[in-house]
Amino acid sequence: MTQRVLSRLGRIGPTAAFLGVGALTFLGLVLPGALGAAVLLALAAGAGWLLAQTWHLHPSRARVMRLVVLGLVVAVAVVKLT
């Protein structure tokens, strides 16, 4: 299952992936309250899963930056909940 999902994600072009994540982020920021927070948390969960699957492929600096960005998305979602 995991390999199928990673294989499908690997076929997505970088521009399409960037625009898709950007659209979800924008949607999460624009939607009010819990709905926007749910979109952001779902995005963070997907990015966290992808990071966990590809952890060994990234250098340590890239891992730290990805964790920082992931933490910021979760923090924004928590702020939207309150």
Rank of each mutant, 00 (worst) to 15 (best):
82 T>F: 14
46 G>K: 04
26 F>L: 15
63 R>P: 11
46 G>R: 04
12 I>H: 03
23 A>E: 02
15 T>L: 14
22 G>P: 00
39 V>I: 14
38 A>Y: 11
54 T>W: 03
25 T>C: 00
47 A>R: 00
69 V>A: 15
21 V>S: 06
66 R>E: 10
7 S>Y: 11
54 T>A: 08
5 V>P: 01
72 L>N: 02
8 R>P: 01
27 L>M: 11
71 G>Y: 02
57 L>W: 13
29 L>G: 11
43 L>K: 03
10 G>W: 01
43 L>Q: 05
35 L>W: 13
5 V>A: 12
71 G>M: 07
31 L>N: 11
75 A>Q: 09
43 L>D: 02
39 V>C: 05
23 A>K: 01
23 A>V: 07
24 L>C: 03
23 A>S: 01
9 L>R: 05
28 G>D: 00
53 Q>F: 05
38 A>W: 14
32 P>Y: 03
2 T>C: 05
1 M>L: 12
79 V>C: 09
40 L>R: 04
33 G>T: 08
13 G>K: 03
48 G>W: 05
44 A>R: 00
55 W>N: 10
53 Q>Y: 03
58 H>R: 14
11 R>N: 09
50 L>S: 02
9 L>C: 02
20 G>F: 08
59 P>A: 12
52 A>N: 07
33 G>I: 04
43 L>I: 05
78 V>P: 03
61 R>E: 12
28 G>K: 00
40 L>P: 00
82 T>R: 14
49 W>R: 07
60 S>H: 12
